[in-house]
Design a protein around this nucleic acid. Sequence first.
DNA 1: AACCCTTTGAAGTGT
DNA 2: ACACTTCAAAGGGTT
Length: 485
Amino acid sequence: MPQLGRDGDDLGANDELIAFKDEGEQEEKPNVSSERDLDDVKSSLVNESETTNSSDSEADRRPKPHPDVESRARHGQLFQEGPRKQHDTGLFQPSPYVGYPFFMISDLGNLCSPYLTNGALAPTGRTVSQHQTLIGILMATLLHYSNSVPVVQHPHMTHLRPLLSYSPEAFSPQRASPGFSPEPGKQLLPASCFLLPTSCIPTTSAPGMSRSPHTACYPMSPGGMTPIPHPLGWLLVSSGFSPRLVPPPQTSVPHPAIVPASVKQEPGASHSHPLLPCRKPPSTSEHDQEEERKPHIKKPLNAFMLYMREERPKVVAQCKVKESATINQILGQRWHSLSKEEQAKYYDLARKERLLHSKLYPNWSARDNYVSRLTAEHTPSLLNTQHHILTWLMSASPASSLDSPATPTTALASPAGPAQLQPLSLTTKPPRITHSVGRNAVTPGPPTPSSTDTPTSSPHTASSRSSPQPLSHPFFHPPPTSSHR
DNA sequence: AACCCTTTGAAGTGT
DNA sequence: ACACTTCAAAGGGTT
């Protein structure tokens, strides 16, 4: 949101920019600033909300709700069939990760698929010496890219500040509401609850600690230009390919995901493999585990999330449903059935959340919470190189199978060639194909800065968003697009 | 234990 | 501008 941009004057981000200092200073200054400003922010936000006009937007775009979901949920019909099975119905549904080789090639040790990325058959019958030559060239390529492929660190990671949790810590009772002492271990309510306590429904669940902190996943040094040790290591390790090509893990350097941000950002220092998944990295010490438990600053809740938090108990009570996926489907339909005034309430609340969040954490970026995944946006050249090398290996491998071209390896085939290589997920598991990704691609963001956070135009114009269609149920219609998470 | 599912919106990046 | 991805909450289900 432009009005919420970090450079926005109203947010006071500039004057709170923190110079790069030692971690002790970084640890203290934002909190002091936050404490000082919190009350003012809250009061000003409340005043602002009273004077802010909620733009009209959502009402006209509201599609007809799908009462079937709720009615079937009440009757338990949604559970008659697994909600995720339907995407397997097709003969082959290309994964959004078309460039992900691990699960496209059932056996990478095989590497024998005769189908190149262009669908052509690879030449067969290469000799052992030819393969050795190819491997040698591959290793040379690896060495080349290990020294030449830069990955730029996110600017927000250049400063060393503590990993504060948005909900539980940033809005500690001592700060937000003196005298309020929550039960230990219980989740404190985020900003919206202090602003509008009546709209909040307390929850006793642990605040989003199921995932390890993502903030420590940025492997790059502040200098930005740090060599990647093994550009293809992820592929080779994950596929179980020849270990000769993969140097043993660097035990001397902890995994970036488990290294405290305060100590891992050594300019110019080498790091462990930046391409490996870091969502659940193994902990090597108590200190690392302690760092892992540190919450990160979470994203502020958007309007729908606020709505869900408020309405979920009602849906649970009404529909006797506990499965969150089903509840969310219902809530999604109810959300669309809301009037624009009702939605404006949540858009406005969400705007306050973002405003307060940006005030408390002017240097925070949503990118900070991204897991360290190698994506095409980050290193497209590297991905293309990987694609080429993989293709090369496939073509170089002795063809042992001339099976049907409809095998998943054809997913690597792209009409446009490597240029359309999709981002490579570094998750250790193949991403599941779901039906919801890509929604945002076709729908412009709802709120416009000039007219508050309520959508001004139909953000759900395109297909999938206007009419969410649950899958796999006989009453459900197939989704327009497939996606992953 | 860890991850998936499912929803919408915000925000990030790349083209 | 557009396309695409990730994350935010939630908790039962799955691996």
